[in-house]
Amino acid sequence: MKLLRRLLDEVVANKSLLLFLGLMLMFRSAVADWMQVPTGSMNPTIVEGDRILVDKAAYGLRVPFTNVRLTHGGDPQRGDIVIFPSPKDGTTLVKRVVGLPGDTITLRGERLYINGAALDYASTQSSADAQLPIATRGEQREYFTETLGDAAHAIMVLPRRNAMRSFAPVTVPAGQYFMMGDSRDNSEDSRYFGFVPRETIVGRAYRVAYSLDADRWYRPRTDRFFSPLN
């Protein structure tokens, strides 16, 4: 009897903590979350070891722990960095929106064309180059500024890798999007698994919370803390 009473007292004493944890889980499921990036498909914008913040309400508020949306929210825009499950195997991916519903997309020698117009490119350098994994820094690599609409971002090209650098024009169906990684020769994206339905897009990544360098005993990359992704 004393043991039962003690257990009940502990439950009552900890109900505030349990309520807080429950609300936190609901918040992370439906409103905002953070995730670790283990691959280099978004180099140089996102570096392996970055933990990024995700706005899960950016494209509509959802019922926690489901894909049921309570509101429509804004639509993904070209240049947004979004989180979604791979149509191929369900793995959580981070990619950039390149094509909107109705767009015609083609790639010719690493150069994107949207609705027949070539995007603007310029050779550049990246401050993230020194923070890339040792294996990547051992490869030949080039950086370019790519302009999507009014926004510009850096992309990385690995010319010695076997990759899809060109494809014929494709038209993005209604309600779907064409995604690509910023590391163009090191990204499994819509070139390989096709279009991504809007309802599966979980949220928009917008900032690095913090970053740890696995090649240097997980030393914090303090210059990346709280840095914006766009």
Rank of each mutant, 00 (worst) to 15 (best):
L4T: 10
L7Q: 13
N14D: 02
L19M: 11
L19T: 10
L21H: 01
L21W: 03
L23S: 10
M24R: 14
L25K: 02
A30P: 00
D33C: 04
M35W: 07
Q36L: 09
P38K: 15
S41P: 13
P44K: 11
V47F: 00
E48D: 13
L53Y: 01
D55E: 08
L61F: 10
F65W: 13
T66P: 14
N67R: 14
G73F: 07
P76K: 04
G79C: 12
I81Y: 01
I83M: 06
P85Y: 05
P85T: 02
S86Q: 04
K88T: 03
D89M: 07
T91W: 06
T92M: 15
T92L: 12
L93N: 11
L93W: 03
V98C: 06
L112T: 08
Y113I: 00
I114P: 03
A117I: 03
A118E: 11
Y121Q: 11
T124C: 12
S126P: 07
S127R: 15
S127V: 15
D129V: 09
A130R: 15
P133Q: 15
P133L: 15
R137M: 06
T147H: 15
D150K: 14
V157W: 03
L158W: 01
L158S: 15
M164G: 04
V170D: 03
Y177N: 12
M180D: 07
D182R: 06
R184K: 04
E188S: 13
Y192M: 06
R198P: 05
I201L: 05
V202F: 01
G203P: 10
G203E: 04
R204Y: 04
R207Y: 00
V208N: 02
A209P: 00
Y210V: 09
L212R: 12
R216A: 15
R216C: 13
Y218T: 06
R221K: 07
R221N: 12
D223C: 05
F225G: 09
N230L: 05
